[in-house]
Amino acid sequence: MAGQQPPSEPRKDDEPPAPNSGGGYVAISYLIGGMVVWGGIGWLVDHWLGTKGIAMGIGAVIGGAAGVYLIARRLGA
């Protein structure tokens, strides 16, 4: 039997960083960040054009979608 070899320990040095290393916080900050940034830009556009929250709503939706896209890109696969 090939029982003479030392047990194969996982080599910590070569592993990528732990998968759940703050990934949740990153995801939340992308989601909220997306909506806040583009919602905020939309709010400025509202002020500039005199519309009442239309641009801010569109901005928040676009920002939320972009946040989801970023999460998929940075954290997924």
């Binding site: 992308y30 960040g33 940034v37 583009w38 676009i62 972009a66 970023l70």
Partner: peptide, 10 residues
Amino acid sequence: PILVPIEFFS
């Protein structure tokens, strides 16, 4: 252009 401001912010 949509993603970079979000990255900067977060």
